[in-house]
Design a protein around this nucleic acid. Structure first.
Lengths: 109, 109
DNA sequence: AATATCTATGAAATACTTTTCATATGAATA
DNA sequence: TATTCATATGAAAAGTATTTCATAGATATT
């Protein structure tokens, strides 16, 4: 039958995809794909200010893309792998065809 | 080995995903999934101003999500189905788990 | 309890996207 | 070729997201 894409009003889809529409959040997701990290570790690794990472993580968490566990005064963030990994794979494939191509003029900057 | 997500610098991914992070563009994609349409048809069907649809289509086209063929003075837009449909499917599945849920507080508005 | 470390948060500033509106372009037709 | 219809486009306005910076809240350590 009709998929949700047809029957829904889409009022919420974009909240989720906004996270993939942002370079920093994609970098965070990518880093967490390799290993779980504290906020400071991420900030150091990505060379980005701590509060910037915190703000980004808060949004990723809202959409269940990441989760954390406490460890002393740290928060160890990890990717919600079971559900996110298949999406990442698709992103990869699409990026190959779409996101660094001659035909996609929008990708230049 | 490492996927593109790991080795790339992601500078362009977000350009593509921005299109999915916008309700109007998702609505256009959804409409085109059902049938190809002219700009005016889309504008009428979605009850949105013509130039708004045009601007949105321009961005979708930049990322190869849609294409068009000329027909008289019309431009008949269609979805780049072969590559986009699998993505839409995944979006559907993810939206079910993420985008209208109790746990996703960000989805409320 | 005072201090240090890690992370979160609020709010203003900045940057970016989308919308709007007026107009331009291009194709068909009278 | 003047007019009409369909679409695109530029630029200002409006809307939204991100960044920045100062500071607050927690937890650990002294």
């Amino acid at each position: 039958m009709n998929s949700a894409l047809v029957t829904n009003n889409f009022s919420t889809y974009h909240v989720f995809f906004r996270n993939l529409a942002n370079p920093l959040k994609i970098r965070i997701i990518s880093a967490l794909k390799e290993k779980e990290s504290s906020v400071n570790d991420l900030a150091y690794e990505l060379n980005v200010e701590q509060s910037k990472v915190s703000h980004a993580l808060a949004l990723l968490k809202k959409c269940n893309i990441v989760k954390y566990k406490k460890k002393g005064k740290e928060r160890i963030y990890s990717l919600n792998k079971k559900t996110i990994i298949p999406l990442l794979k698709l992103i990869d494939e699409h990026s190959k065809s779409f996101c660094n191509c001659k035909s996609c003029k929008g990708c230049e900057k």
